[in-house]
Design a protein around this nucleic acid. Structure first.
Lengths: 139, 139
DNA sequence: TCCAAACCATAGGAAGTCCAAGTATATTGT
DNA sequence: ACAATATACTTGGACTTCCTATGGTTTGGA
């Protein structure tokens, strides 16, 4: 019980910090995650459905984030060549510029100063990985 | 980095489960926390300001939760006897009935089946307690 | 004393999450 | 071939969180 509370508090602290760091880049953590995912994908484009699965977020939440990313010109929705239902997400050139800057900033200010020792971090990761696996949250 | 992501995912899984469990009781996790806090306080009433500090949540978020709790008749706002600025929160009799039922249900369905072994839970709690202390999140 | 600074709570607005429904497109079975 | 089913995404609504700003109350210093 105390452990669950601690996890929730910690998550909210990290989220607030991440949002504060990303604000000057015109991003929130949720939108950063979308950008980062697109940056990872080798083809450079992903269907909404796949992106929402990988981010472990509801399709509607992703629609929301993408609406805002599209409004600020960082990503683009393009039609799928063969399936009329799906849209592909793609970074714009603006998005390609913003992403590395935001990522570096986040790495430097959040991850490097996370107040977690290396062993603590691996410890936590392993325990929570077990938990998530047992909960069906595929990694 | 992976550790931070794991913490966030885990928190969101727990939050969803807690909300699902509390739904039949007409509660969300945020509102349950308010009720639980009032149940703990020995005098049975707390100023908004103090409650928001203890819950580590913004005053405006608490106002929101309390609005809904008051609308469903589980808590009451009463004036402070000597300080005209502050309002005291108090459980209604309905609130006093709902709280133990919700708490038992949550204990049984969430905490007991948390997919965390006892040692894992204490391990996590201790690591995160160190982190929160270092981050100024007083326990 | 009394005016300014501090404090308490609330209102309004932006963002995120989810769920339940709806629309459009594919796929499948008869 | 055509109706039934399934999939992909969006819309609308409920809820939480935060921030900024505002209206009342204390309280403390000139």
């Amino acid at each position: 019980m105390a452990a669950i509370t601690a996890v929730m508090r910690t998550a909210s602290i990290y989220l607030q910090r991440a949002d504060a760091i990303l604000k000057p880049h015109g991003l929130t953590f949720a939108r950063f995650e979308v950008l980062a995912l697109l940056g990872f994908s080798k083809r450079g484009s992903l269907p909404m459905s796949q992106a929402s699965q990988l981010l472990q977020v509801h399709a509607t939440s992703l629609t929301n984030s993408v609406d805002r990313l599209e409004a600020t010109g960082l990503v683009r929705r393009i039609p799928h060549p063969t399936d009329g239902r799906t849209r592909l997400l793609e970074l714009t050139t603006a998005g390609q510029q913003v992403l590395p800057a935001a990522r570096d900033d986040l790495n430097e200010k959040l991850f490097a100063r996370s107040n977690l020792s290396g062993t603590d971090a691996t410890e936590i990761f392993e325990i929570l990985a077990r938990f998530r696996k047992a909960s069906g949250d595929f990694l």
